[in-house]
Amino acid sequence: MSTEIKFNLNGNDIQVTVKDHWTLLYLLREVMGLTGTKEGCGSGECGACTVIVDGQAVNSCLYLAVELNGRCLITIEGLAGPDGTLHTLQQKFVEHGGIQCGFCSPGMIMSSKALLDENPTPTLDDIKHALAGNLCRCTGYTQIFESIQAAIDTGTEDVEVVAWKNET
């Protein structure tokens, strides 16, 4: 069965017809060509596919596309400004070695953003708790924590990001 859904994607209202059984990850990668969101396991155990729906980090590999109806979705493609200006988190991940092979990075950055949107001054333990579902095999996590802490010190809202909070 197909359903027409309306949702907000990275600040743009869009309308798309989806099959009921499509996951959000499938919709993004295979239908809309937004391949920034990665599939690392397909079963909610690695977090590479993390996106933000209505302000909350979710695994897009387990989230039905049809459930997006009426919601706001932010993917990694929505973080950098139209002129290429990086979101503070992206900038800090780049500058502090938070990225090696990069496969976990989009999901890692989305989880970090969801955390900072909810709690702008998390402790190291808060960060670890929030990122526990994002596996990384390259970095040993330390430089990821440092990247996030650097973003906290800078403040995250100095880049214009279309966030769900701004929507009515």
């Binding site: 391949t35 969101t37 973080l79 992206q90 900038q91 990225i99 990069g102 989009p106």
Partner: peptide, 8 residues
């Protein structure tokens, strides 16, 4: 390549 990776 970090920027390419950070932006997907």
């Amino acid at each position: 390549d970090a920027i390419d990776k950070a932006t997907g």
